[in-house]
C-alpha cells in the first residue's frame, strides 16, 4: 500500500476486448481497485487483443505478431493487470510461441512474470485487504476455466468478496464446470455449448443466489444471455464491480442503461 513515502506501483492495465467493448465499467472498476491498492494505472493505447482467437485456432504466426505487439505495449510497467483469467492466461502462453534462440522468448517470459489477473494480483501479489464496498444480497461464484486451471484462481475472489458488507455467498453445484463459452466454441458448436450453459444456469438458480458473479466477461455474457433467454431473475456481474462498489448500473444484459454513466 502506498502512503506519502512510497511511490505508487506502476501498473499497465490490460483492458481486454470484451471489457473494452461490452462492459467498460469492468475496466473502470479494475482501475479503481488498483488505485485503492496504491497503484498508478496507465492504459497503453497500442494494446489490442491478447491473441487467443488465433492461438486456439492454430494460427501461430498471427499469435506471435500479436504477442510481440503486446510485449512492446507493456514495456516498462512493473505489472500488467487485467480483469480476465482467460486473457491474462493467454499472456502466460506467449513464451511457448518463441524458440529458445529467439530474443523474444526472454521478453515473453518477462511479461509472463509481470502479468496478473486482478483478484490474484490484489491477494497474491499485494496482500491487499482494503475492500470498501457494500452489496446486499446472495451471490454465487462461477470459476472460469482458464483462471482456475491455468492461473490457480479459486480462493482469491472469494476472499475479497467476503470483505464486502452485506454479501452472502451461496456456492453452486459444479462451480468449476465449464459454462460452454470456450471462445469460438460457442458459435462453432452452438448445440453443445447450449447444453453446457443450460446446465450452468440450472445450478446457478438452484443455489438460491440473486447474483451470479465471475471473473471473465466471456463466460458472464454467455451465462447472462442464457439466463435472460430463460427468463430467470438472476443478475450477472463481474467480480470487480462488486469489489469496487460499482453496482448502481444495470447488471449484464439488463435494461435501462444510462449510456456513459459508468465514467
Amino acid at each position: 500500500m502506498s502512503d506519502a513515502h512510497t511511490p505508487p506501483i506502476k501498473v499497465g492495465l490490460f483492458v481486454t476486448c470484451l471489457a473494452d467493448m461490452f462492459r467498460p465499467e469492468v475496466a473502470f472498476a479494475t482501475v479503481k481497485l488498483l488505485e485503492q491498492a496504491g497503484c498508478s494505472v496507465d492504459v497503453p493505447d497500442t494494446q489490442t487483443c491478447c491473441g487467443q482467437p488465433a492461438f486456439n485456432s492454430g494460427d501461430n504466426q498471427t499469435s506471435r505478431d500479436i504477442a510481440r505487439q503486446t510485449i512492446k505495449a507493456f514495456d516498462g510497467y512493473r505489472y500488467v493487470v487485467g480483469p480476465s483469467g482467460s486473457c491474462i492466461g493467454m499472456l502466460h502462453h506467449y513464451p511457448e510461441l518463441f524458440t529458445e534462440d529467439d530474443p523474444w522468448k526472454a521478453r515473453a517470459e518477462d511479461l509472463k512474470a509481470r502479468a496478473f489477473e486482478i483478484t490474484s494480483f490484489l491477494v497474491d501479489e499485494l496482500g491487499f485487504s482494503g475492500i470498501q464496498s457494500r452489496f446486499n444480497g446472495r451471490i454465487t461464484y462461477h470459476d472460469s476455466c482458464s483462471g482456475l486451471r491455468e492461473l490457480g484462481i479459486k480462493q482469491q475472489p472469494r476472499q475479497l468478496l467476503a470483505e464486502i458488507d452485506g454479501v452472502e455467498m451461496h456456492e453452486m453445484q459444479e462451480a468449476e464446470t465449464c459454462c460452454g463459452f470456450g471462445g469460438t466454441f460457442c458459435v462453432k458448436y452452438p448445440d453443445i455449448s447450449n447444453r453446457m450453459v443450460s446446465n450452468k444456469t440450472e445450478f446457478a438458480a438452484d443455489s438460491g443466489a440473486e447474483t451470479l458473479v465471475g471473473g471473465d466477461l466471456g463466460c458472464l455474457l454467455n451465462m447472462a444471455g442464457k439466463l435472460k433467454r430463460e427468463g430467470r431473475e438472476i443478475d450477472v456481474r463481474h467480480v470487480v464491480e462488486l469489489l469496487a462498489d460499482m453496482t448502481d448500473n444495470a447488471a449484464i444484459g439488463e435494461a435501462d442503461y444510462d449510456l456513459g454513466k459508468a465514467i
Binding site: 483492458v15 461490452f22 462492459r23 467498460p24 473502470f28 462453432k188 452452438p190 433467454r229 465514467i263
Partner: peptide
C-alpha cells in the same frame, strides 16, 4: 445466429472503454 438461437446477446453499455478513458 449460433449465439442468439439459444441465448440473448447483451449489448455494450456505452462507448468503448478506450473512448471513455
Amino acid at each position: 445466429a449460433g449465439w442468439t438461437d439459444h441465448r440473448d446477446m447483451p449489448v455494450p453499455t456505452g462507448k468503448t472503454f478506450m473512448q471513455q478513458w
